[in-house]
């Protein structure tokens, strides 16, 4: 599988390493060159640049990518880049990590695949505190927005 990951923070670098070690063709994009220090013994490609710039995405091979995930620390950046990947480059599988639960739910309703790590983390912790078994991920993503 050819994967493009936007954002080489903690989550992006861990994912990149893991997928690359499993033999996938991985490219990571970040605008901070220091971010790539997190990738040791990494066999994939690293691209320096702004993930909202279609030229940068092309350099990362988005035109031939099977999947694209956006895990920068900016929710809006993740949402926008995922829409560029989906609408302009027709990447079949995309996912945006979102911190803000209300924004995640709004975009999920608009048909943009999102993963709200805040809701998942909070849900797991609450279950732990209440002595409950951890359940399926979808249980934690299903939340009400007032």
């Amino acid at each position: 599988m050819r994967v493009v990951i936007l954002g080489c923070g903690r989550m992006g670098s861990v994912m990149a390493k893991q997928l690359s070690d499993e033999g996938h063709d991985v490219t990571v994009i970040d605008q901070d060159p220091n971010a790539f220090r997190r990738l040791k013994d990494f066999n994939g490609k690293m691209v320096l640049g702004n993930g909202l710039d279609p030229d940068v995405l092309k350099r990362a091979g988005i035109e031939d990518a099977d999947s694209f995930v956006a895990v920068t620390n900016g929710d809006n950046r993740n949402i926008t880049s995922v829409q560029i990947a989906k609408e302009i480059f027709n990447v079949p599988k995309v996912l945006a990590r979102i911190y803000d639960p209300m924004r995640a739910s709004a975009y999920e309703e608009l048909g943009i695949p999102t993963l709200c790590t805040t809701m998942i983390g909070a849900g797991l912790m609450v279950d732990f505190l209440l002595g409950k078994e951890w359940g399926e991920v979808s249980r934690y993503c299903d939340f009400q927005v007032d």
Binding site: N76, N78, I79
Partner: peptide, 16 residues
């Protein structure tokens, strides 16, 4: 000055 912010703001304004 950020295209991501501008897209999300106008998109939510329109659709939500």
């Amino acid at each position: 000055g950020d295209d991501g912010d501008n897209l999300v703001i106008t998109q939510l304004a329109k659709r939500k």
